[in-house]
């Protein structure tokens, strides 16, 4: 074999080629993300400190580095701001409460139907999420079946509605992001060796203690990933609030959208976007630090 007599220099050149390869692999995708994610964010930061051109057309702005835009935007919209985070928090907590037993059941109690059930968790998401949200609106709405039953049983008053309420918005958020909670939970529960739970039982832990001391800590990475994947999109969502809410349930997303399209107030929309993103990133960072899980990606 001639190859066996490869000289030392040939080997080293082979190595150099290999060290260049990862950058070639990274380049196109990273360039795309840089151009269409990082640059727009930078541009957004610039827009956020602009002010309207005096006597100019609607929608024309100039850079005046007016950082007070942020204060104005925040003060004008602090209700929507806090509402976004409260709704997102409630939806995340509800989704966790619903998804954990579901993921637990799929991981440990479903036997040979495990894969099928897993598909079924994701399956609803193959129907457009707008269609499903609107379906909820119609199911819970004035002409739907639920409201008359509830009123008939006097669970709610005759004039109380289920839709166009904060309740409906939170329900919609919870429902829409449920798989983002369930799948990571399942992934980390599934990795737990059931024998560790049996061992806990053997060592005098009852079912509740076993859960609290063994199962829950071991599934914590899934809890962290799931809550993040639910909270982040929920905090920025405006579709649920638009379809299931009323003017008093508007979230920050709704404001950003209307500032952009209806009022053409780009600086305020940019300042709000930036504030929202920063707030979420700070929350996420603190949360990850506390939960002690760095490896999320």
């Amino acid at each position: 074999m001639a190859l066996l007599h490869a000289s030392g220099s040939k080997v080293s050149s082979l190595k150099e080629k290999r060290s260049l390869l990862p950058y070639l692999l990274l380049a196109p995708g990273i360039l795309w993300l840089f151009t269409f994610f990082i640059l727009p964010i930078v541009n957004l930061a610039q827009t956020s400190t602009q002010t309207p051109v005096t006597n100019g057309d609607t929608g024309s702005y100039e850079q005046t580095f007016r950082f007070a835009n942020y204060i104005d935007a925040f003060v004008d919209n602090k209700e929507q701001f806090s509402r976004s985070f409260i709704y997102a928090f409630l939806a995340t907590a509800l989704a966790l409460a619903i998804a954990y037993p579901l993921a637990y059941g799929i991981a440990f109690k479903s036997g040979k139907y495990k894969n099928l059930l897993l598909v079924l968790v994701v399956a609803p998401f193959f129907t457009s999420f707008l269609l499903r949200t609107i379906a909820w609106k119609q199911i819970l709405g004035e002409e739907g079946p639920v409201i008359s039953v509830f009123r008939g049983l006097h669970i709610i008053g005759q004039n109380t509605s289920l839709t166009a309420s904060a309740f409906a918005v939170v329900t919609g958020l919870t429902y829409n992001f449920l798989p983002f909670m369930t799948l990571p939970l399942y992934a980390s529960l599934e990795r737990i060796d059931p024998r560790t739970m049996e061992a806990a039982g053997d060592l005098y832990a009852n079912a509740f203690t076993t859960f609290r001391k063994v199962t829950l800590p071991l599934s914590l990475p899934g809890v962290v990933a799931g809550t993040l994947l639910t909270f982040i999109p929920a905090a920025g969502d405006y579709v649920n609030a638009a379809i299931l809410g009323n003017p008093n349930t508007k979230m920050l997303g709704n404001v950003i959208e209307s500032r952009f399209f209806k009022i053409v107030d780009y600086p305020t929309a940019a300042a709000l976007s930036f504030t929202l993103m920063t707030a979420i990133l700070i929350l996420v960072t603190v949360y990850i630090r506390k939960a002690g899980t760095e490896e999320l990606v």
């Binding site: 269409f36 994610f37 964010i41 994947l229 940019a270 976007s273």
Partner: peptide, 30 residues
């Protein structure tokens, strides 16, 4: 592969997933 700047790349991959859609959409349009 081994390369320098791995953690920067990881962050760049993670950030779009941690950014609300409304921000992604608005910034790109702007």
């Amino acid at each position: 592969h081994q390369f320098k700047g791995r953690s920067t790349i990881n962050t760049l991959i993670f950030l779009p997933m941690a950014t609300p859609e409304v921000v992604l959409g608005a910034s790109l349009l702007a």
